[in-house]
C-alpha cells in the first residue's frame, strides 16, 4: 500500500479535511482506492470517478481526478456516458448502499447487465448517513434506524448476490477494517475488463453506531472485522487487529472476490462489443 505522502498526491489538499464524521471508515476506503489507482498505474488525468448522493459520494470531491458528483442513485448512468463517449478513460463509481441499492438499484443492475467497463464501489454502512440515520435497503433485521425505531423488519439486500445475478463480471466484498486486502481487491477490480463491483463493509458511528450501541469508529471497525469470521476469530485478542470479544459470532459474510467471468464488454460503438 502506498504511503500517505503518495496518496495525498491524489487528493485536492485545498479542500481537506473532508466532510465525513470522525471514525467514518469511508476515508479508509478512499485511501485504499487511491493506493490501488497508484498500484495499477493509472494516469490521474485519465481517471474519472463518478458518485451519487450520500456520505460516500461526497468523497469524490476530494480526489484529484476528473470527478462528477451526480444525482442520487444515478451515478452509474453518468459513468456509462463518460466511459462510452471516451473509452480511454478509467471510470469508477462511488456509491452508498441507499444510493446504489434503493434509488439507484435499477441503474446498478443494468450497468452490470450491459457489462460496461466500470468499477463500482458500494460503501455499505447499513444506513442513510447524510440524511440523518434512516433505514437503508441493507439495514440488518433488528437494527435501529431513525425510520425503524423498533428495529428494521425488512430483509436487507445481499448486494453481491444481486450483482452476480445481474451479470456483473467481477464481484467482491471487502471490509474497511482490512485496508490492505481492500487495496488489492480494488486493484483487481480496476484491472478487470467489464463491470467490476466491490461492496465495502464500512461504518457509520454517528448514526448506526449510536442507535445500535456499537460504539464509535474503533469499535465499529472491530465489529466489521469480526463479521469476517474467517480470520477474526483466530486473531481475536491480538491487539493489532481491531477486535472486541469474539464469542457468539453471527455467521459472517463472505469476503473476498466472489465471482469472476469474462463476457463481451458493451461499448455502444460500431462493431459492438470488444
Amino acid at each position: 500500500m502506498t504511503t500517505t505522502a503518495q496518496v495525498r498526491e491524489h487528493l485536492r489538499g485545498w479542500a481537506m479535511p473532508h466532510v465525513l464524521c470522525p471514525g467514518c471508515a469511508h476515508g479508509i476506503v478512499g485511501r485504499a482506492f487511491l493506493s490501488a489507482v497508484d498500484d495499477v498505474g493509472i494516469d490521474p488525468d485519465q481517471m474519472a470517478v463518478v458518485a451519487g448522493i450520500g456520505c460516500s459520494s461526497r468523497l469524490v470531491g476530494y480526489l484529484d481526478f476528473c470527478t462528477l458528483h451526480a444525482t442520487h442513485g444515478r451515478a452509474p448512468s453518468f459513468a456509462a456516458g463518460i466511459k462510452l463517449a471516451r473509452p480511454e478513460l478509467t471510470v469508477a463509481v462511488f456509491s452508498g448502499d441507499g444510493d446504489g441499492l434503493a434509488i439507484g438499484g435499477n441503474h446498478l443492475i443494468h450497468a452490470a447487465r450491459r457489462n460496461i467497463d466500470l468499477t463500482v464501489v458500494l460503501f455499505n454502512n447499513e444506513i442513510y448517513g447524510m440524511t440523518g440515520g434512516q433505514a437503508a435497503p441493507t439495514t440488518s433485521v433488528g437494527a435501529i434506524a431513525s425510520t425503524a425505531p423498533r428495529g428494521s423488519v425488512e430483509s436487507p439486500f445481499d448486494a453481491c448476490k444481486l450483482m452476480i445475478g445481474a451479470g456483473a463480471t467481477f464481484v467482491a466484498r471487502a471490509a474497511a477494517s482490512e485496508p490492505y486486502t481492500l487495496a488489492r481487491i480494488f486493484a483487481d477490480a480496476l484491472d478487470h475488463e467489464g463491470l467490476s463491483f466491490v461492496e465495502v463493509l464500512s461504518d457509520c458511528p454517528t448514526y448506526f453506531g449510536r442507535y445500535n450501541k456499537l460504539g464509535s469508529g474503533p469499535e465499529m471497525l472491530a465489529a466489521i472485522t469480526r463479521s469476517d469470521n474467517r480470520i477474526a476469530i483466530p486473531l481475536a485478542g491480538k491487539r493489532s487487529i481491531p477486535t472486541i470479544d469474539p464469542p457468539d459470532l453471527p455467521p459472517g459474510v463472505e469476503l473476498g472476490t466472489l465471482h469472476r467471468e469474462h463476457r463481451p464488454v458493451f461499448t455502444g460503438r460500431a462493431g459492438g462489443a470488444t
Partner: peptide, 17 residues
C-alpha cells in the same frame, strides 16, 4: 513503521516516514 495507522486513518492525517 508498520503503517497500520496510516492505512486505517479515514482522514489521510497520519504520515509515517
Amino acid at each position: 513503521g508498520c503503517r497500520l495507522c496510516e492505512a486505517l486513518c479515514p482522514d489521510f492525517a497520519i504520515r509515517i516516514s
